[in-house]
Design a binder for these strands. Structure first.
Length: 480
DNA sequence: CCTGGAGTTGTCCTA
DNA sequence: TTAGGACAACTCCAG
């Protein structure tokens, strides 16, 4: 290694030093200038939302520690910032791990060209996907549109994911003047909204290791069924760490597999791995269909008669005041923790799209702002799936009933009690649909409907019927 | 080109 | 009480 040789290592969504291909290669090459650039402008509509910015701040703080406070922070058009740095430090090469958002792909290929013109070598690596989206295709060369064949035939049959890589033994950082401090990036929200998050998320490499360990010990063995119950800690909750690359999917994949080597067959393991497969599928769809975040994948939905929200219905949903306890619990979990259990994401999504008939893109935007794991691929693919307009979407007649879901997956109301405390004293029998409770039971438990807790915003039966009719009209228009 | 089987997560009604 | 079929037909995918 030649220490006098200097490369720029550009951290983006790979905020870790373990299993980091770009870091390893850059360190082999000589000394590094490790940088982070907050580039809101290039991201356009999809610059980080408020909750993500809080998480990002913490993640960068941790990464900076791991790099002995040598991480350099910048803000602005990444293309300009990066080229200025390269010139100033006389770097011979630039290293980064790939991003897959359409805007990032466009920006990065532009930067690559500019650097090549300057005779700077650029190397990019895969650090965030188990399979590159362009490497998985059907025999006819076109992309898969259905998950199961994509995952089973496309991914699993092709090649094993890369094994995780070691932390480089020597990371030599070069000093540089003229960077900003992390706090100057103003990533923390102005209000104290994020304070609640601090008690919930340990945003550090130790924190993510503990999270993974906890899941392998407590969740994996019962994952297949257990993941359905929002009051239980049977899901991994690794999503925000994966989103910012504090852990790689490869690390999670092999950690889960190695936990199970003694059992020849394990459906819980397979189900968990397939969830990582769904993350891959989302990125895959985003890569091959870059309009995924903003346009119906099935264009017949373009004419769908979404309600234009005359009654501030959207805001009622956002605040968790719909009068359906499970829906409200989910929405409040989101606002209070920056996270929502997977089953609740389906329940509240189905409610917004199919009971309130509000455009899925409204829900997508709210999630984008509130989720610490807001990920363009997963968020967009998830909303298209629940709305039924996606590539491999839920059929339109699959409409979640929030009461049935509540009785099935939160039968004792533990989850509801936690996030909708005004109902916490109600007996389990009545907590799923409090308007059906006898008056004296409500009174005795300090619930006054319409005052301490809202009456249902819509009738489930009627709104379901209205949705079915609207969706079947959409279908008929295509045939005509 | 043709063919047949299949497609994350549900709900409701009926027998 | 419970289990099974309807819901809707279409597109996707592999042989």
């Amino acid at each position: 290694m030649d220490k006098s040789r200097v490369s720029v290592l550009w951290f983006r969504q790979d905020l870790r030093i373990a299993d980091n291909p770009a870091l390893i290669e850059a360190c082999k090459d000589g000394s590094i200038v490790p940088i982070y650039i907050l580039d809101d402008k290039s991201a356009g509509d999809w610059k980080y939302g408020a909750a993500s910015r809080w998480f990002l701040f913490e993640a960068l703080t941790d990464l900076n520690k791991l790099l002995n406070n040598q991480l350099l922070f910048f803000e602005g058009d990444a293309s300009k910032v990066l080229i200025d740095i390269v010139k100033e430090v006389g770097a011979e090469g630039v290293y980064w791990n790939r991003c897959y958002e359409p805007w990032a792909i466009e920006r990065d290929s532009r930067i690559k060209k500019s650097l090549k013109v300057l005779n700077i070598s650029v190397q990019s690596f895969n650090s965030s996907l188990l399979w590159e989206p362009w490497a998985v295709l059907k025999k006819d060369g076109t992309p898969y549109k259905v998950f199961t064949p994509f995952y089973r035939k496309g991914c699993l049959v092709s090649s094993s994911p890369r094994m995780p890589l070691e932390i480089p033994s020597n990371i030599n950082c070069v000093a540089f003047e003229g960077s900003k401090s992390l706090s100057e990036l103003r990533l923390r929200p102005k209000n104290n909204w994020y304070k609640k998050f601090e008690n919930i998320w340990d945003v550090s490499s130790d924190g993510v290791a503990a999270k993974l360990r906890g899941f392998l010990d407590e969740g994996l063995d019962v994952y297949r069924e257990g993941r359905n119950f929002p009051s239980k800690k049977y899901v991994s909750a690794l999503s925000p760490y994966l989103r910012f690359g504090m852990i790689s999917p490869n690390m999670v994949w092999y950690a889960a597999i190695s936990e199970k080597t003694l059992k020849s067959e394990d459906r819980n393991l397979d189900t968990f791995l397939s969830e990582l497969g769904w993350r891959e599928f989302s990125y895959y769809l985003l890569y091959h269909f870059p309009q995924l975040p903003s346009q119906n994948l099935q264009s017949k939905f373009d004419a769908f008669p979404w309600h234009k929200d005359p009654d501030d219905v959207l805001e009622i949903w956002e605040k968790g005041l719909t009068g359906y306890p499970l829906v409200d619990a989910g929405m409040r979990e989101l606002y209070q923790t920056g996270y929502m259990h997977n089953r609740l994401r389906m329940v509240v999504g189905s409610f917004l799209v199919k009971n309130l008939l509000i455009d899925w893109r409204e829900g997508e935007k709210w999630f984008w702002d509130c989720l610490v794991d807001a990920d363009l691929a997963s968020n967009s693919a998830g909303w298209q799936w629940i709305a039924g307009c996606g590539a491999d979407a839920a059929p339109y007649f699959r409409i979640f009933n929030p009461i049935t879901q509540s009785e099935k997956f939160d039968s004792e109301g533990e989850y509801i009690r936690k996030y909708v405390p005004e109902l916490s004293k109600l007996p389990s029998k009545y907590i799923h649909a409090p308007w059906q409770a006898p008056e004296e039971i409500l009174k005795h438990n300090n619930v006054e409907l319409g005052v301490t807790y809202p009456l249902p915003i819509v009738d489930i039966k009627e709104s379901r019927q209205a949705a079915l009719e609207a969706f079947s009209r959409t279908k008929l228009q295509v045939q005509a």
